[in-house]
Amino acid sequence: MIDREQVLHVARLARLRLSDAEVEQMTGELSGILEHVDRIGKLDLEGVEPTSHVVALENVLRPDLPRPSLAKDVALAEAPEPVNGAFRVPSPQAE
């Protein structure tokens, strides 16, 4: 199961700011789901190959040929804060 502290740690990893109410609710809901999910933890799957892919492909490669890039204004068209042809973000603070 998962406790409040773990929920806060995971929320930080995921860059999600949760209200106290959300933390409460999340702790309960995640615990419930994990309880169900934990069933597979009890299965003995020693030596079973994990599947990260169902497609049996290898070496899908692209020739090293340039493709046209986006026009600068198009690249920045959706930017919340375009500045001097770049994407502006607040600086990270020392912690």
């Binding site: 860059r15 999600l16 607040p90 600086s91 990270p92 603070q93």
Partner: peptide, 20 residues
């Protein structure tokens, strides 16, 4: 993450703030 497209929170302070 509010950097290249999509919404960015108005109350963004520092970088971590903006993300969260």
């Amino acid at each position: 993450d509010g950097v290249r497209y999509g919404m960015r929170s108005e109350e963004a302070g520092d970088l971590l703030d903006m993300y969260e």
